[in-house]
Amino acid sequence: MEFERRRRVETRIEARAVAADKDRQLFGPAVRRSRGPRHAGLFEAVRRLDAGLDAATRAQLAEWIRAEYANEFGDVPLGMFAVCHLGPPFVDHRLDLWQSIVEHYAPADTVPEPFARARMMVRSGAYEFVEVYASGELKPVLKDGTVVA
């Protein structure tokens, strides 16, 4: 009696586990993958984009970053917003990965949407950069590579 009961319960749990596996196959991994930590190579590349490269090298670098995102995280952002190290009057800049444009901004300049909201996040100094997606989603990346999403 007791034994039967126990077995029945166990099968139930297994059935649930199978269902959960199915869920995972459907939508689990994509979301997880897109949240994977950003590695030092990306940080380095994003920093180099800032440092006055010629157009061809910049385009090449932007393409490398795009490929890296597509392979590793499955989703490529429109661009990044980060603190600018050029010095005054510039405080921050926008990196457009698709047109490989770097645009530096002084405090009084207006930043186009959807980058404008990223500006205040970057200003806190807690993030390496903020990824801006076409959907308008902003994913700040902490200095240790963790993505806030």
Partner: peptide
């Protein structure tokens, strides 16, 4: 940790420029 990071991100984004 994640809830805290998201919470922080959201209010930081809401600071008027």
């Amino acid at each position: 940790d994640r809830a805290h990071a998201l919470y922080t991100r959201d209010y930081r984004g809401g600071v008027p420029g």
